[in-house]
Amino acid sequence: MKYGRAPKAEAQEPPKRRLKTKPLLILIAILLVTNLLWFIGWLIPDPPKIAATNEEVASVAGVPITREEWMSAMEKEVGREVLLDLVNDKVMEAAAKQYGIDVSDKEIDLELALIRSMDGQSYSGIDAEKMRQNIRANLILEKVLTKDVVIKDKAVKDYYKENASLYNTLTAYRISMIIVPTKKEAEQAMEELAKGSSFDALAKERSVDFASASLGGDIGYVNEATKFVDSAIFQAAANTKKGDHTDAVKLSNGTYAIVQVNDMIEGQSFTYQEVKDHVRREIALEQLSQSVTPEAFWQEFNATWFYGK
């Protein structure tokens, strides 16, 4: 099969309650890499000018660790993933041009809304623009892979009717939180916030939820169906204005949370006309015999990289 081309296929009746799998797995992988990169970016200080490679960044028992050693270690740890992400973005843009694929802001907005509504889906530590670029690349991949797959209108309409709840999204809040063991510690943190301390700095310093603390307390978007946070956190967020933070909120495990609302997305219902192209791709992707990643297009667009084959 030529790269990017799928065989023509007649539509089959879609089973009920199918969720996107192949593209979602790709997106989740991208999210994990992006989260890691965000955290590393936070660790790296902003130097006033380019530092010499022998600059000392730490020492152990009087033995210095240089910037060169540090950067080399990071390159070995995540350099491959960073470069892979960059190359794949460029490859997908080349594929869009080659096959006449267009991705509109409206399509990206739809995908964002649908992902936010998924129970447990987190955007923690993800820059909004980077997230949109990731979704754009994924949409290009989906469109290239499914452009030659024939799906009957009846199959699309049946899928929409059978899975209508997937296209009725819940109101979601992007929140950050500081979790501390006692109410007294929560009140102390709130006093520091009142004096001008930044929320993310306090989260990194004081929160006992280490996963979110490393990201300044950011846990992404939550809605009333989210399972990975205490329901008291969502209720507190729902009663707090964007940009504000709550008082101390007691959680079911006895700890206390201070919750900051960074963003709020109103729930909405999408009509068949608004999501029919999305649904058509969903069904078409299920008909492909194997999962395909952007790397499958490297040869077609003459992509090479530092790591060889």
Results as ranks from 00 to 15, higher is better:
M264I: 11
I265H: 07
I265A: 15
I265N: 03
I265Q: 11
I265C: 04
I265R: 06
I265K: 07
E266M: 02
G267I: 05
G267L: 07
G267R: 03
G267D: 02
G267Y: 04
Q268G: 10
Q268I: 06
Q268E: 12
Q268W: 00
S269I: 10
S269W: 00
S269V: 12
S269F: 03
S269L: 04
F270T: 01
F270H: 01
F270E: 01
F270K: 01
T271F: 04
Y272L: 15
Y272N: 06
Y272H: 05
Q273G: 06
Q273A: 14
Q273C: 00
Q273K: 08
E274D: 10
E274M: 07
E274T: 08
V275G: 06
V275Y: 05
V275W: 02
V275N: 05
V275K: 02
K276Y: 08
K276L: 01
K276G: 01
K276W: 05
K276C: 03
K276M: 07
D277Q: 10
D277H: 08
D277E: 15
D277L: 04
D277V: 00
D277K: 07
D277I: 00
H278Y: 15
V279E: 09
V279G: 10
V279N: 04
V279S: 10
V279F: 12
R280H: 11
R280W: 06
R280T: 13
R280V: 04
R280I: 05
R280Y: 10
R281S: 14
R281D: 13
R281T: 11
R281Y: 11
R281L: 10
R281G: 11
R281W: 05
R281M: 15
E282T: 14
E282P: 00
E282V: 13
E282Q: 15
I283Y: 06
I283W: 05
I283T: 08
I283D: 09
I283C: 14
I283Q: 11
I283E: 07
A284F: 11
A284M: 12
A284H: 07
A284K: 06
A284W: 06
A284L: 13
L285E: 13
L285C: 03
L285G: 05
E286R: 13
E286F: 06
E286D: 15
E286G: 14
E286W: 04
E286M: 09
E286N: 13
Q287G: 11
Q287H: 10
L288H: 02
L288W: 01
L288E: 02
S289F: 03
S289D: 14
S289N: 13
S289T: 09
S289V: 08
S289C: 04
S289R: 08
S289W: 00
Q290P: 00
Q290T: 14
Q290F: 14
Q290A: 15
Q290I: 13
S291D: 11
S291T: 08
V292I: 12
V292S: 01
V292A: 01
V292G: 00
V292T: 05
V292Q: 01
T293R: 14
P294M: 09
P294T: 07
P294A: 13
P294K: 14
E295V: 01
E295W: 09
E295L: 02
E295C: 00
E295P: 00
A296T: 04
F297L: 15
F297C: 05
W298P: 00
W298N: 10
W298S: 02
W298I: 01
W298L: 06
W298K: 09
W298Q: 05
W298G: 02
Q299C: 02
Q299L: 09
Q299F: 11
Q299G: 09
Q299V: 06
Q299M: 09
